[in-house]
Design a protein around this nucleic acid. Structure first.
Length: 287
DNA sequence: GCCACTGTTAGCAT
DNA sequence: CATGCTAACAGTGG
């Protein structure tokens, strides 16, 4: 479930631990993990230094001094763990990067095997197929630009929010939390959003993602940071996973809907479908 | 044991 | 072009 806040947490927790370290070896234990090139191509990393760790959307970029980078996606169950070389290797470990002069190594675990890595030249990273169509980073995006992203669009609001070509980094959990915070229904048609609602949505995106990063991510199931530690935002979720429980705002019952094959958690009282056309009041209007 | 469910993205269908 | 559905996979829970 790593979404933007989880990936950011992983990157932050690992950056200081890994920066400047000289690579000993990169071992791929599950070869289909590598999306391009040959495994032997990873030899070129031996002896070079890891010089940077970055996040773009839900992707991680590991930059090396030899001018190459590894692009990595954790998909649903991926974990990046900096642990002792002597710690038992479990069967879900897919990749190991070991370093010189330290007893610790970086392991990529991925139970469901959806994750991948791609080797590319650092200078050409932005052109990688996984990166070139990514939308802007939601944090720090100004309201004007956000409005432009929605301008002229149709379709369900939630589908937009989790569409990575629209904004990079928001997934199912945070989309639900953001929509609850902004009091918008996931199935609202974008075209019906009023300016004030778009502003509220934009503010909610900033607010929820900020708080989730500050809480070091959400550990509903698999998520751990680079040190194997859980995040704490799961305690602050207000709709996701709270089906049947009372809404913390109005006391109503949280329900779960199915939208485009994904579960959506909402408070039906706080999040009503936008009345069609320009109703200047957000009261319950019959069409 | 079996089936439904989980959430991300690619790829295909509409 | 845009949107929707499903497969890829493995584990969990009913």
């Amino acid at each position: 479930m790593p979404e933007l806040p989880e990936v950011e947490t992983i990157v932050r927790s690992l950056r200081s631990r890994l920066s400047g370290r000289k690579i000993e070896a990169i071992r791929v234990l599950f070869p289909p993990l590598l999306r391009n090139g040959r495994l032997s191509g990873l030899k070129k990393f031996e002896g070079t230094r890891l010089i940077g760790l970055r996040r773009r959307g839900k992707m991680i970029l590991i930059d090396y001094q030899n001018g190459f980078s590894l692009l990595l996606h954790l998909k649903m169950t991926g974990q990046l763990l900096f642990c002792q070389k002597t710690a038992a290797l479990d069967k879900h470990t897919r990749l190991v990067i070991s370093f010189q002069s330290t007893a610790r190594e970086l392991r990529f675990r991925d139970v469901r095997k959806f994750g991948f890595i791609r080797c590319l030249k650092t200078a050409e990273a932005a052109a990688a197929p996984e990166l070139k169509n990514l939308g802007p980073e939601p944090l720090g995006l100004d309201l004007q630009s956000f409005r432009r992203l929605l301008d002229g669009r149709r379709g369900r609001l939630k589908s937009r929010l989790i569409n990575q070509t629209f904004l990079a980094g928001i997934g199912n959990i945070y989309a639900d939390e953001i929509l609850f915070e902004s009091k918008l229904h996931p199935a609202s048609d974008i075209v019906h959003l009023r300016p004030g609602q778009i502003k509220r949505l934009w503010q909610s995106i900033q607010f929820i993602l900020d708080k989730a990063i500050a809480a070091r991510g959400t550990s509903v199931r698999d998520f751990r940071d680079g040190d194997g530690l859980e995040g704490s935002f799961q305690a602050r979720l207000r709709v996701y996973g709270r089906e049947g429980q009372p809404c913390l705002r109005c006391g109503g019952k949280i329900v779960r809907l199915r939208l485009a094959g994904r579960s959506s958690h909402i408070c039906p009282r706080c999040q009503q479908l936008i009345p069609v056309k320009r109703a200047s009041k957000a009261t319950t209007s019959q069409r």
